Computed example of a mutant assay.
Amino acid sequence: MKLGIPHGEVEAFACPVTFTVDVIGGKWKSLILFHLIAQKRRFNELRRLMPEITQRMLTLQLRELETDRIIHREIYREVPPKVEYSLAPLGETLIPLISAMREWGATHEEVVLEYRRKASEPLPHNVD
């Protein structure tokens, strides 16, 4: 929950979990960070690794992560220009969290998907 702060000032958060979710939450940010743990990546590499993301959404997510200094954007002055993204020092502090999320997903994916499947099944009809 965000605290009431006048428009234009930095937002404050009432809960550290809410703040963390604001920084790395959503469908794409944690996945981008996961792909940057192993090595630097170029924009099109990230697009290939996440084929469902649009170019616009990837650009927006990268900009937000860069603004928060979670990732670093390196521009190489060559022709054609080359840009690489990597984890910034602050982003490296998220590696244990991202790794734990990956491990949790690998461990619990099947059972959660089964719960979802059961929840979406039609209820049995009573025959009187």
Rank of each mutant, 00 (worst) to 15 (best):
G105V: 04
R73M: 14
R42M: 13
R77Y: 10
P122D: 06
G91P: 04
I71Q: 01
K27M: 09
L33C: 06
A38R: 12
K27I: 11
L94T: 01
T18Q: 10
P6V: 09
P16M: 06
Q61M: 09
R102T: 06
I37Y: 00
L36F: 02
E110G: 15
P96G: 01
P96Y: 00
L62D: 03
F34R: 15
L97W: 06
Q55V: 10
I75F: 11
L46H: 05
E45G: 13
W104T: 11
I32W: 02
K40R: 12
P51I: 04
P51H: 04
D68C: 10
E110W: 04
T18G: 15
T59A: 11
R48Q: 14
H35Q: 10
L46C: 08
W28A: 04
E45I: 03
T67G: 10
Q39S: 14
V111K: 12
W28D: 08
I32R: 02
E66C: 11
L58K: 07
T107M: 09
G26I: 06
T93S: 08
S86K: 05
R63T: 13
L46F: 06
P89I: 05
S86I: 01
E114F: 07
V83G: 06
N44L: 07
V83F: 06
A12C: 12
L33R: 00
L65C: 05
P96R: 00
K29Y: 00
V10H: 13
R73H: 08
V112N: 05
R48H: 10
E11Q: 15
P80I: 08
A88S: 15
A106L: 14
K40T: 11
S99R: 00
S30L: 05
M101I: 12
V17A: 15
L60E: 11
R41G: 03
M57F: 02
P96D: 00
E11F: 08
P89L: 08
